[in-house]
């Protein structure tokens, strides 16, 4: 495998890792109003419980996005410099959503005031939904098609990215994240929230997988081969597997199954799409491809060495974080004795 292919794979892994990790915190945040029930105090307690499941990890998850975008810039500046300006407004919307969401996580508890709390909780939900839609739309467009001219600039003005690829990607990422968040909550909590989350995932998982499977299927039909077709089938089977595991209360296995839905779909999309990184709807000859968009072999070699050493370390300590906070959470916050 040459270095450009390796880095295309690395970028694909980073985007998939981002969707897999941030996907459940987008989902949990979006489900706050859906899975909290009862009177105002009870709903607030439910929301607190749900937010505690992602509290220690959402920021680390978001770094996957920063690294994915950084890797696109680093390895394929031609991709970065075509994709971002072509979808200027959706990316700005993404940034606005991520900013308000991040501060809302931290600021929500800074005052003992129900209205303040409720406002920031709504901002967390709204910001997460908009961010999931925007990032899904952007990924849908780069894999399915953007109006790109021969020189890599956008034709047709500020809204020329609007189209079904953006809508499909947006709905796919949001729908996947909703069920992902529900399965995560079922895995990480006890009590009524766990039951509701499991019921939600059981009811919606087949439907929520459809847009993602449709997206992957379209890329496979356009440019896929045997391997990407098999990957697509694996993704479809994983949906069935997830559902059956949920049915018998095996949340851990269901979580792995639902993760496999994403891993296989993303592998199908990126695998079938390769070597195209931005598909042009104007003329396939204008597609931005790995070879034309990439940096020099020297720079790729340097990055390969640094990432080869750095990435295992990162994966190690992120995994350790999940291990430290592995316990199921209950509605009663624990007042643990301090380690002396």
């Amino acid at each position: 495998m040459d270095l450009q292919t390796l880095w295309f794979a690395a970028v694909a892994v980073l985007w998939t890792g981002f969707l897999l990790l941030e996907g459940f915190d987008f989902g949990v945040a979006a489900l706050l109003p859906v899975l909290s029930r009862g009177d105002a105090a009870q709903r607030r307690a439910d929301k607190n419980l749900m937010l505690r499941t992602i509290g220690p990890v959402w920021d680390g998850n978001e770094v996957w996005l920063v690294t994915a975008v950084g890797a696109v810039f680093a390895a394929f500046p031609g991709w970065y410099a075509t994709w971002l300006p072509a979808m200027y407004l959706p990316f700005v919307l993404l940034l606005l959503a991520l900013i308000v969401r991040a501060v809302a996580f931290e600021w929500r508890h800074q005052r003992h005031d129900a209205a303040w709390d409720a406002t920031w909780t709504r901002v967390i939900t709204g910001g997460s939904v908009v961010a999931a839609l925007a990032i899904g739309g952007a990924l849908g467009a780069t894999t399915l098609g953007l109006p790109i001219a021969a020189d890599g600039t956008r034709v047709g003005g500020a809204f020329s990215w609007v189209g079904w690829p953006v809508a499909l990607g947006a709905v796919a990422v949001l729908a996947y994240s909703l069920v992902h968040g529900a399965v995560f909550l079922a895995l990480k909590t006890e009590g009524p929230v766990r039951e509701r989350a499991r019921a939600f995932a059981l009811r919606w998982s087949p439907l929520a997988a459809l847009p993602l499977l449709a997206w992957a299927g379209l890329v496979v039909l356009r440019s896929g081969g045997l391997v990407s077709t098999v990957l697509w089938l694996v993704a479809a089977l994983a949906v069935v597997g997830t559902w059956t595991r949920l049915k018998v209360d095996r949340e851990g296995q269901a979580f792995l199954g639902w993760a496999l839905v994403l891993l296989a779909s993303a592998a199908a999309v990126f695998g079938a799409g390769y070597p195209t990184v931005v598909a042009s709807t104007v003329d396939p000859a204008f597609d931005v491809v790995v070879g034309g968009a990439s940096v020099s072999d020297y720079t790729l070699t340097v990055m390969t060495w640094v990432a080869g050493v750095g990435l295992p370390v990162v994966l190690g300590y992120q995994a350790w974080t999940y291990w430290v906070f592995r316990k199921r959470l209950t509605a009663e916050p624990e007042h643990e004795a301090a380690h002396a």
């Binding site: 509290g55 220690p56 990890v57 920021d59 680390g60 978001e62 770094v63 920063v66 690294t67 950084g70 890797a71 810039f73 680093a74 390895a75 500046p77 031609g78 970065y80 410099a81 940096v295 020099s296 720079t299 340097v302 990055m303 640094v306 990432a307 750095g310 990435l311 990162v314 300590y317 992120q318 974080t321 430290v324």
Partner: peptide
């Protein structure tokens, strides 16, 4: 970004990989 891509982007990516993960993960901890 196109002009400086061979140098500038790789520094940003390495910053994210080597610094941002460390910062955000360990602050959470």
């Amino acid at each position: 970004s196109r002009f400086v891509g061979d140098v500038f982007g790789s520094i940003l990516a390495l910053e994210a990989l080597l610094a941002f993960f460390l910062e955000s993960t360990f602050l959470g901890l």
